[in-house]
Design a binder for these strands. Structure first.
Lengths: 324, 324
DNA sequence: CTGAAAGCGCTTACAG
DNA sequence: CTGAAAGCGCTTACAG
């Protein structure tokens, strides 16, 4: 037995399908009397409206696509979680896709948006895209500059990083390393190293930078490269939570004492166990950032004009056990 | 300027819309000649087919909905990641929703599936649902018994747990505690405690069980309850990765030595940093499980009959540093 | 307040 | 091999 449609309801209630539609959508001009009849027909038939019809006629899916490099990553999964909550509050569902570091997959997601599978997309990408590809599409980007008309949501990478490195200096560090996974030039994330360099120069300290382009999941190799250098350091500014955990695990199994011999501050700390128990952290306000993403995207979808192109959120400094 | 539709393409190519549709779908009976004309019209107009039309006419969305209690959780996000990959390989997109421990939200997801927003759903739920609600819906469940016609994908909870507890005994533990977040009766996960109880009885050992119903994110309270008991124990069998990390953090900041004074085995270890660096773990083969979920669901969607109702996957035992 | 009808963008027998 | 037409399940002016 096939599912009942709006026609079946109309027939059973003895009204036109337009009337059923109006009841379904809480249209105000409907008499109590007919409304009641329609509702009871709906209940009797166990009718649920089919979204496919609605989407086609309204040319709107109420779906937001989210693209991340990988889903199984503390930062991205937290981001997705917050996006889902924010989207849900505004009546949108979340389509989640991972590029797995393949640009073709990213382009496929774009095509899906163009095909109206989603009304818009939130992008976390490491790749350079042709600006043309975003033509007429509603897209919000996290951290990365994708094109003139694509708003960015990010954190105060430069200021927060600067404060972090200065904090390490203030706590007595003389030899501070920078440990990062190299973002593209066009990413706001690259300001983290810039801030580090600037502070080091200002204090006449020699920089020691390990900033490599690695795939998510391979962070430990970056950590290894730092230690293979055999250089001395008493402080590390780390960019990214997985890199930080990886670093911490490495240290834990060694003979280095934290924070006595080595102090660490990390951009994005540990997301597990409710916060930065171990590592001193610059925490991005992900909930607010996610809400802003959704808010901006919906504005774009609705064709609004006053969409703020640059949205910078301040990190919270959270003292952990990795600094004195 | 509105997006071009199949009509525009047909007109430009001088053919009927049916022909365009056939070209789009690689229908075999199309002459090379017209195919070429249509393709060039498509390119010229920069046409992308609108999925809404296709979905309505085919009554199929090629979307799989995934429901988890929370997204931002190592186990669930890893699961989602694997589901997305498996679904993508088979031409399905993933709609992700979190119940946030609210049964109303779970029911809303069900309604969405009923509305054909998705062709089917993969459920990870802690709640009891009315079997009626799943009537005619394609649903696959992880761990939990949701109804007679709903296949389950799970791991060998009983056997793996039994082996883990016996392992602790073999390694010299005398006083072994069970630490868990209480699942419902209908979940396969409850077999973990059962296995523990059985082994303890067999070895004439006194059980010590802390198995509480907590929200994800609140696992540390369960850990606290164990320590508040002030009882002695030299071994713990933990059920669940967040509980394990929470336990481990607690221990790390104390004076207990692992594995010298206390040995730990955990069902689901750490998902970060590529595996169980710290804790000895029973690891569920999530990739295979996710693939099976998708495979079963697609069978259900296609109305196939030979759908295996119970799918049990063996855990891998991974020795970490938390046992001797 | 309500019904009949056109339309959203596709697919797919049907006929040729 | 291909076109005209009906149909998928909704929404929404339009007319009354």
């Amino acid at each position: 037995m096939r599912q009942p449609t709006i026609k079946d309801v109309a027939q059973k209630a003895g009204v036109g399908i337009g009337t059923v539609s109006r009841v379904l959508n809480d249209s105000p001009q409907i008499s109590e009397e007919t409304k009641k009849r329609v509702l009871s027909a709906i209940k009797e038939l166990n009718y649920v409206p089919n979204v496919a019809g609605k989407r086609l006629s309204k040319n709107k899916s109420n779906v937001i696509a989210v693209l991340v490099p990988v889903i199984n990553h503390p930062f991205f999964s937290k981001l997705i979680a917050e996006l889902e909550i924010a989207a849900d509050l505004r009546g949108y569902s979340l389509l989640v896709a991972s590029s797995q570091h393949r640009i073709e997959k990213e382009n496929e997601i774009l095509r899906r948006v163009a095909q109206n599978e989603a009304d818009g997309a939130i992008f976390v990408t490491h790749y350079q895209h042709n600006e043309e590809e975003f033509k007429n599409l509603a897209v919000v980007s996290i951290d990365r500059h994708l094109g003139k008309d694509i708003p960015i949501v990010t954190s105060n990478n430069y200021e927060a990083s600067k404060a972090a490195v200065e904090y390490l200096i203030q706590k007595g560090c003389q030899r501070i390393a920078y440990l990062g996974t190299k973002p593209s030039q066009a990413s706001e994330v690259s300001l983290r190293e810039k801030a580090y360099q600037d502070v080091m120069k200002e204090h006449h300290l020699e920089p020691l930078v390990i900033n490599e382009d690695v795939t998510h999941g391979e962070e430990s190799s970056v950590v290894n490269h730092l230690f293979e250098r055999k250089e001395k350091f008493d402080g590390i500014f780390v960019s990214g939570c997985t890199l930080a955990s990886s670093l911490y695990d490495r240290i834990e199994s060694g003979h280095i004492k934290v924070p006595e011999d080595l102090q660490i501050v990390s951009y994005d700390g540990e997301f597990q166990n409710g916060g930065a128990s171990r590592i001193t952290t610059l925490e991005q306000p992900l909930k607010k950032m996610a809400e802003r993403c959704v808010e901006l995207l919906i504005k774009l979808i609705n064709g609004e004009k006053d969409v703020e192109p640059m949205n910078i959120f301040d990190c919270h400094f959270i003292k952990g056990k990795s600094t004195k």
